[in-house]
Structures are given as structure tokens and as C-alpha cells.
């Protein structure tokens, strides 16, 4: 009998980086061009089949971090891991992601996470420098370029995190 696990993971990042779009792409394989901001948190669920077990990922898509809407840390309670998202065309969003990661680690200790550089379909407008990404990778971070529009890297990212949570 296959073991089924259920894990809460949180989507964290600045506003308009594509967190909701990544979840929609992962859960329902759809993408919408229109941007609709998230208030509070959206809860969704996706089952991931691993080689020896099944993981129900409970996805908490948190409102984007910005000057007026600070992250409610209570939402992270009980999270087994998290997904940091940055927009490759907006360098400031990487700074937000790095800041969030420091705050999460300060409050909840080291949790499994992945860093997604989203909007890779807009590579011509990419402004995050490769040297910075290389430095994070050298620090042991799992970093992937993704595109919620095309689906590039999305399943791989969530699958990787699921693997980490299932260990």
C-alpha cells in the first residue's frame, strides 16, 4: 500500500511575481494573462506521485510582499516547506525573496525551500544578473528559471520540493 503524506507549503515572494500563476499552472495546467492580486491567502491542493509514496501538497498562496502589505507570519504556521518566487525582469523582487527567506528562517528555523526565477519567457527583458544566481547556487540553493506562461520548470520545481518534504 502506497504511503500518502500531506504537506503544507507556502508560496512567498513580492507582488506580481507570478505565485498564483505558478500554482494555477501546477494545479490546473492553465495560465491567465490578466493579473489579479491575492488578498490574504489562497488554499489549493495538488497530489504528487513520487516513486514510493504519494504527497498531497497543500499550497498556501500568500499575498505578495510589499511596503503596505507585510507578510502575515501566522500563515506559515505548520508549513513543511516553501517556494520563494522572484520575477526575473524585476531585480528588486529577488531582494524581497532573499529578505523573506531570512525572516522565515528566523521565525521557523531552516525549512526546505526552492527559489524560482519566474517569467523566463520574457528572457529578453531579464535583468537579474547571472553572477548573483551562480552565487546562490554555490551557497547550496536550489534555483530554477520558470515560466508560468509556458509551464517551463514548474512541475520540476514542485516535484523537487515534494521529494525533499517526503524524505
Amino acid at each position: 500500500m502506497t504511503v500518502t503524506l500531506q504537506k503544507k507549503i507556502c508560496m512567498l515572494g513580492g507582488f506580481s511575481v507570478g505565485k498564483t500563476s505558478l500554482v494555477k499552472r501546477f494545479v490546473a495546467s492553465v495560465f491567465s494573462e490578466s493579473y489579479l492580486t491575492t488578498v490574504g491567502v489562497k488554499i489549493d491542493k495538488k497530489t504528487v506521485e513520487l516513486s514510493d509514496r504519494t504527497v498531497n501538497l497543500i499550497l498556501w498562496d500568500l499575498a505578495g510582499e510589499d511596503e503596505i502589505s507585510s507578510l502575515r507570519m501566522t500563515y506559515l504556521r505548520g508549513a513543511a516547506g516553501y517556494v520563494l518566487v522572484a520575477d526575473g525582469t524585476r531585480p528588486s523582487t529577488l531582494e524581497v525573496a532573499l529578505s523573506l527567506r531570512r525572516r522565515v528562517e528566523a521565525d521557523f528555523g531552516p525549512l526546505p525551500f526552492v527559489l524560482l526565477l519566474n517569467k523566463n519567457d520574457l528572457r529578453k527583458e531579464w535583468t537579474i544578473r547571472d553572477e548573483e544566481i551562480d552565487r546562490l547556487k554555490q551557497d547550496g540553493w536550489w534555483v530554477r528559471s520558470t515560466s508560468a506562461r509556458t509551464g517551463e520548470g514548474v512541475d520540476d520545481a514542485f516535484g523537487t520540493l515534494a521529494e525533499q518534504l517526503a524524505r
Binding site: V39, G40, V41, I43, K45, N56, I58, R72, G78, A80
Partner: peptide
């Protein structure tokens, strides 16, 4: 397992407590 939004929240860390504006799968907050 039936109300999956409860995953990780039980038992509550403090009581009473509120988890505000949670949008569930059917779109209601």
C-alpha cells in the same frame, strides 16, 4: 484529510486565534 486547509494548523499554536481571509478552493474567502 477532509478539510485540507487545516493541514499544519492543528492543534492551534495559541487559542483563541484567527487565520484571516483564507480563500478556499471554491473561491469563497
Amino acid at each position: 484529510e477532509q478539510a485540507f486547509f487545516l493541514e499544519g494548523l492543528l492543534p492551534p499554536f495559541e487559542t483563541p486565534c484567527i487565520m484571516p481571509s483564507m480563500e478556499l478552493a471554491n473561491g469563497r474567502a
